[in-house]
Nucleic acid binder design. Structure first.
Lengths: 205, 205
DNA sequence: GTCTATAATTTGATAGAC
DNA sequence: GTCTATCAAATTATAGAC
C-alpha cells in the first residue's frame, strides 16, 4: 500500500472505464480517448498503464468471460441431483448477470469475431468445459425412468437459451414488451423460478 | 433492364460483399476497403454507389432486420391455434436463419449500440410489433383450462429464446459440444420439432 | 461506370517536460 | 505518475482522368 486514502487508484478507474466503454461499444468501436475521458485521465497515461488497446481489451474480456463461463461449467461438474442443478444454475446465473446485463452479448459478439482465438483465451489450460457428465446424468435419469425420454443435448440448449437470451435481447424485449428497467429486473427475478418450473413440467413423467 | 446477361450487377456484388463484411465484423469493425475487395472493385466506386459507410450499413442492417422481425410479428398477429403458431414459428424461423446463422447476433449487437435509433429504423411507421394478441391468446387458453396456468410473458420469452439463442451462441455451442457445421445444422433441424414438443409437454395439462 | 491518386480525418501510440 | 504536444498509421471520402 504505497498510497492511502484515495477514492480509487488510477488503475482501478481505468479498468472500470474500459469495462464500460468496451462492453458498450465492443473492441472495434471503443476509442482509447473515450476510455481516457471516462477515467478522467488522458490517453498518454492510459498507455502508460496498459501498453496498447489490445492488452487492455484482453484484461476486460477475460474478466467478463470469467464471470460467465465458470458458472456454466459448474453445472457440468457438480455432484448434485439434476433438478437441483437446474434450479441453482438459473438462480445463480441470473443473479450474476443481472449486475452486468450486457456482458453476455459483449462476450458472445467478441467470440464470434474470432472463435478460435477468443475461446482459446477463455479456457487456456484449465477451465475447459466438460458437458459430458451433465449430458450423461440426463441420460441416466431417462434410463432410470425418472424423466421423459428427452435428448440431453436439446435439454442443455434449452436451459442455457432460456436463461441467457433475455439478457442478450434486453433492449428488444424491453421495447417490444414495454418494460422499464425495474420491470425487466423483476421479470428476470421471476425467471429464477419460472425456468426450472417450466423445464420440470416439460420433462417430468 | 439497361443491361442484359451479366452474372451480377456491380450494385448486387457490393451489397453481397457488404453484407458479408458487416455481418462478420459489425459496423465499427468493417472496413470499406474490405468490402471493396470482396466485391472486386475499389473504394471510389463503392462511394459512387453508396455515398458513405453509414448509408451502406443502413441498407444492410435493414435488410437483415427485415428477415428476422416480420416472422416474429407474424406469430403475434396470425389467426391460428396456439400450438400451430408455436410449431410454425419454430420451423419457419429456424429455416430462415439457418441460411444466415450470424444475422441474429449481428442485428442484436447493433441494436444494442443504440436501441432507440436502430429500433426506430426497424419499424418506422408500420411493422410495429404487437405482442398483445399473442399474450392474450395464451391467457385465454389458460382461462379455458386448455393449458397450465403459465405466465404468457415467460412463455413468449422461452419460445423466442430457445429458437434464436443457439444461433447467437453458435461458435460456443459448436466448440463446447464438438459439433461440426453439418452436425450443427442437423441439431437445429431437429429443434424445429424438439422445441414445440418441449413447450407442449411443459404447458399441457 | 470505373479507375488512380490524393485529400481529410480519425485514432492508436510515443516523446519528453514536469 | 501525469501531462502537453506530436507523430505515424489507418481509414473514410473526394477529385479528376478515362
Amino acid at each position: 500500500m504505497s498510497k492511502i486514502k484515495k477514492d480509487k487508484s488510477t488503475e482501478e478507474r481505468i479498468l472500470a472505464a474500459a469495462k464500460k466503454i468496451f462492453v458498450m461499444k465492443g473492441m472495434a468501436g471503443a476509442r482509447m480517448q473515450d476510455i481516457a475521458d471516462e477515467a478522467g485521465i488522458n490517453k498518454a497515461l492510459l498507455h502508460y498503464y496498459f501498453k496498447n488497446k489490445e492488452k487492455l481489451f484482453e484484461v476486460i474480456f477475460l474478466e467478463a468471460a470469467g464471470k460467465l463461463f465458470p458458472k456454466i461449467n459448474e453445472i457440468f461438474l457438480a455432484d448434485k441431483p439434476l433438478f437441483e442443478k437446474i434450479e441453482s444454475f438459473c438462480a445463480e446465473y441470473i443473479s450474476i448477470v443481472m449486475e452486468n446485463p450486457y456482458l453476455p452479448l459483449f462476450v458472445l459478439n467478441e467470440i464470434n469475431q474470432d472463435p478460435e482465438y477468443f475461446l482459446s483465451k477463455v479456457w487456456k489450460g484449465k477451465n475447459l468445459p466438460m458437458p459430458e457428465k451433465f449430458l450423461a446424468q440426463i441420460e441416466q435419469e431417462v434410463a432410470k425412468g425418472k424423466i421423459k425420454r428427452i435428448s440431453p443435448l436439446h435439454l442443455l440448449m434449452n436451459l442455457i437459451s432460456m436463461t441467457v437470451f433475455p439478457f442478450v435481447a434486453k433492449p428488444m424485449f424491453q421495447k417490444n414488451l414495454g418494460l422499464d428497467e425495474l420491470q425487466f429486473r423483476s421479470v428476470m427475478e421471476q425467471r429464477k423460478k419460472e425456468i426450472p418450473g417450466f423445464i420440470i413440467d416439460a420433462i417430468k413423467k
